[in-house]
Structures are given as structure tokens and as C-alpha cells.
């Protein structure tokens, strides 16, 4: 029998989200649709929210081998959207190497709008095959802060980069305007291919050099300007590797008694944390974007480090509200 209803446009794993600006500069959602296994939740809006908050979730708290999630996000002019998760995005084992679990995000950020995407790390389990593609199209004056990080798996169970394959792709494009095609600003591809052979150097865990987590933070746009400057200046202010302390003992004593400012003491604590967590990071300007790469021996160390950086600088909370940094504190 022919169905009298129009065919459903909703497909498994697909979702769509539109944020727009209400009067009094309040961002709100005008559209939110999703289909199993994707789930989106937005807390009820309050009058003083700085951005509209959406939880990106999956039923059962993870993606089962072969799940395909595709989310389209449209941030309308001047609206602000924050996306967070509730715990690691777990990727379960695939029954075979050909079954790929995919997550795809297509985001369009319009004039003067902003998106803050600070999720928990992806946690691929042993034997999983995962592919993530995130494409951001930015109009004039649009801002984006995006964090993409992946952990070694269930380290408590002894997993250490034991998945089959993990690939992450982040692209930032300028929006096409006046018939001109958009131009690619940045393409950050990371391919972690499981074990390429039996030799030591070919094992993924060996290639990861004792790191339990690695990630990328990409910043672009006017709202991110001060945060970007902060990261670059903190990076160039790092103590030199292999430098020696040439001060005499007397001078060391004098310096240790000197009163240090709050910022200096924060920096000292942060450097100690970087040391303890074995955290390595670098920051670079790439075609107008600021790209921060980091890796650490512990997931918690990386989380505390990035949370501390964002909190110290403060502009993310200022522009998007405290909730935007939920996953990194």
C-alpha cells in the first residue's frame, strides 16, 4: 500500500541545528532535529545566557561499530552557540576492519556569529575504526573555537592506542561570496593507523611516544583574537629547552623571596603541571587561524591544562558563558 504521508526526510544518525539571535541579543535555537543514535539536548534558555548551549550526545553514551552520525549546524548572523558533550565519546569495537564508525559535522557560521565547540575527548576502544570529518564554513566576522582530541582508549583496562584506525579531519573554509568559491584556510588531518607491522617503530603506541592523549585546538575570528594572542604569547614565553640556570645561589635565594604577581604564580603552577603531565604543546599562526597542538601522558593532565589556559585568559566564558567550558574543567 502506498503511504499517504510524504517520505520522511529524517535519516538515522542525522541531525540539524539552527541557532539565531532573538531581540535583546539572546541566542536561541530555531531548529533542533535528530535521529537515533544521535541525540541533542538543550537546557531551557535563561534571560541572561551568553550563548545557547547544546549537548551533543549519543544513545547509550557511545557509538557502536558502524554508526553514522551526521550533524548540520547553522549559526545565523550574530548568534552564539556552544556545544559540549557529557563524558567521552566512546567508540566501540567494529566487528571487522571495513566497518567504519563515522561522525560528520558540517557547520556554517554566518556574519558575526560564533561557535564554541569544546567537547570531551573521543575514546576509541580496542578494535574500533573511526572517522571524523568536521567542516566549518566561516562568513565575514565569524568566530570559531574548536577542540578535537583523542585518547588512547580504556587505559584502565590496559588499552594503549589499540584501535584499528582513527582519523580526524578539521577544515576551515571561508564562505563563498559574490560568485567566488570559498577558500580553504586550514586543513588539519590526523591519521592514526593501528599497527603497521610487528616492528617496534611500527606499533601505534610506540609512534605515540607514551602520550595518552593528543589534540588540536583551532581558533579563528574576532571573538577569539585575544585568546589566540594569549596562546601565542604563552608559547613564546615558555622556558627554553636545554637552558641552564646560571644564577648564583645568592641570586636564587633573592629571587625566590621576591613577591610574584598572581599571573606569574599561575604560570609557575601551569609549567609545573606541564612537567608533571608530560604535556608538550605548540602554537602557530596558520593563514589567519591559530592552531594549538598538544599531547600529554595523562588525559586528566591535558584536561586540566587546557581548562587552566582558557580560564586564565577568560574570554571564552565572557563570550559564551561558563557552561561552554563544561568539558574542560
Amino acid at each position: 500500500m502506498i503511504s499517504p504521508f510524504p517520505p520522511s526526510s529524517s535519516r538515522p544518525g542525522n541531525g540539524s541545528l539552527t541557532a539565531h539571535l532573538l531581540p535583546h541579543s539572546i541566542s536561541a535555537l530555531s531548529k533542533i532535529t535528530f535521529q537515533y543514535p544521535l541525540k541533542l539536548i538543550s537546557p531551557s534558555p535563561s534571560a541572561n545566557q551568553k550563548s545557547v548551549l547544546v549537548f551533543l550526545l549519543t544513545y547509550g553514551g557511545g557509538l557502536v561499530g558502524g554508526d553514522q552520525v551526521h550533524l548540520n549546524i547553522d549559526v545565523k548572523p550574530k548568534a552564539r552557540l556552544s556545544i559540549v558533550t557529557q563524558g567521552h565519546t566512546k567508540v566501540f569495537k567494529s566487528t571487522s576492519r571495513d566497518i567504519v564508525t563515522r561522525q560528520r559535522l558540517d557547520v556554517s557560521i554566518e556574519m558575526g556569529a560564533a561557535l564554541c565547540l569544546l567537547p570531551d575527548p573521543v575514546q576509541p576502544f580496542e578494535g574500533s575504526v573511526y572517522e571524523q570529518v568536521q567542516k566549518f564554513t566561516l562568513a565575514d566576522g565569524a568566530s570559531v573555537c574548536l577542540l578535537d582530541w583523542v585518547s588512547a582508549g580504556r587505559t584502565a583496562r590496559g588499552e594503549d592506542w589499540d584501535f584499528h584506525a582513527w582519523s580526524g579531519r578539521n577544515e576551515l573554509w571561508t564562505a563563498s561570496a559574490k560568485g567566488e568559491a570559498g577558500r580553504m584556510l586550514v586543513r588539519d588531518n590526523v591519521f592514526l593507523d593501528g599497527n603497521l607491522g610487528s616492528e617496534k617503530e611500527r606499533l601505534l603506541k610506540h609512534r605515540m611516544q607514551n602520550m595518552s592523549i593528543c589534540g588540536t585546538l583551532i581558533l579563528n575570528g574576532p571573538l577569539m583574537e585575544s585568546l589566540a594572542v594569549f596562546f601565542i604569547s604563552e608559547f613564546s614565553g615558555l622556558p627554553r629547552i636545554g637552558a641552564r640556570d646560571f644564577r648564583s645561589q645568592a641570586n636564587v635565594d633573592i629571587d625566590s623571596e621576591r613577591k610574584i604577581s598572581r599571573q606569574e604564580s599561575w604560570r609557575r603552577d601551569r609549567l609545573q603541571l606541564e612537567k608533571d603531565a608530560g604535556l608538550l604543546w605548540s602554537a602557530a599562526k596558520v593563514r589567519g587561524c591559530t592552531v594549538i597542538k598538544f599531547g600529554a601522558r595523562t588525559v586528566e593532565g591535558a584536561r586540566i591544562w587546557i581548562g587552566s589556559m582558557l580560564k586564565e585568559e577568560g574570554s571564552i566564558s565572557e563570550h559564551f558563558g561558563e557552561e561552554a567550558t563544561l568539558c574542560v574543567r
Binding site: N189, V190, I241, A243, L280, K293
Partner: peptide, 23 residues
């Protein structure tokens, strides 16, 4: 070329942190 990418993430860190070397 779309699928060209980093296969050893720590390499980006080593190369990026070259500027941090004292000598």
C-alpha cells in the same frame, strides 16, 4: 591530496617546539 595528513602527531610537536630550544 585531501587525504594527506599527519600520521605521527608528536612530530608536529617536535617540529613546532624547535623554536623553544635554548641552542
Amino acid at each position: 591530496v585531501e587525504d594527506a595528513g599527519q600520521s605521527v602527531p608528536v612530530m608536529d610537536l617536535w617540529i613546532g617546539r624547535h623554536e623553544m630550544l635554548y641552542s
